[in-house]
Design a protein around this nucleic acid. Structure first.
Length: 209
DNA sequence: TCATTAACACGGG
DNA sequence: CCCGTGTTAATGA
């Protein structure tokens, strides 16, 4: 595990921090489709992503859910971090989008590291900043763009994080992620296909460039 | 006007 | 047959 940490993070973290991470971290491989963290779960560990992609989804009391942002290599989960300081329960769901490899650290270590390592402090702040700007972008899209643009952006984003131009996804799933109805997605998918922006078949959508 | 909900038909696995 | 898809009609914001 230490080798992997060095390979991905040697320019981000101090040597001593990587050593300590290798000591206390547990490596976990998770397959696409798994839920890593669900709403209401107690947070005992913080994930650091080595490989793969994870989407972070919010759900309100009426079961409306929508996609907040993606975690990729070099990310950790800012929501998880803020939760763990107060010992709160998770307000989000983390779903594995692409087979992932993560290292889990106990929550208690995070506070230690904040004091001990400058590189960890910087990492945490940068992570917050990245999440903030992704969320601002999401809000902007929500507030100022219609569903067709949102859908097109959703497809492009997903293609980027999954590193494949063909998405295996149903209209129903997209409708859930964008918090709208399937009828609308079906109609817009058809329209995007007619505009030659995408190709659509059962269970899959291909982004054309 | 455009989204949602319900309903229906079609077709592939 | 089941599920995903494409469409329509009614209703509402």
């Amino acid at each position: 595990m230490k080798e992997k940490l060095i390979a991905k993070y040697q320019y981000i973290f101090e040597e001593n921090l990587i050593k300590e991470m290798a000591l206390v971290g547990q490596i976990r491989k998770v397959k696409k489709g798994n839920t890593m963290i669900d709403i209401g779960n107690n947070i005992t560990h913080i994930p650091l992503i080595l490989d793969g992609a994870i989407s972070v989804i919010n759900e309100d009391k009426d079961q409306n859910e929508y996609l907040l942002y993606y975690l990729e290599i070099g990310d950790s989960c800012a929501m998880t971090m803020s939760c763990c300081l107060g010992g709160k329960k998770s307000e989000i769901r983390a779903l594995v989008e692409k087979d992932a490899e993560v290292v889990m650290f106990p929550v208690s270590k995070m506070e230690d590291w904040l004091i001990k390592y400058r590189s960890w402090r910087i990492f945490v702040f940068q992570n917050y900043e990245a999440v903030m700007s992704e969320m601002l972008e999401a809000i902007d899209t929500l507030a100022f763009h219609n569903m067709e643009e949102r859908l097109y952006k959703y497809i492009r984003d997903k293609v980027l994080v999954l590193e494949t131009s063909t998405l295996e996804i149903t209209h129903h799933q997209i409708a859930k992620d964008l918090s709208t109805s399937r009828v609308v997605i079906s109609r817009l998918i058809k329209k995007l296909a007619l505009d030659h922006k995408i190709k659509s078949t059962r269970n899959s959508i291909t982004l054309l460039k």
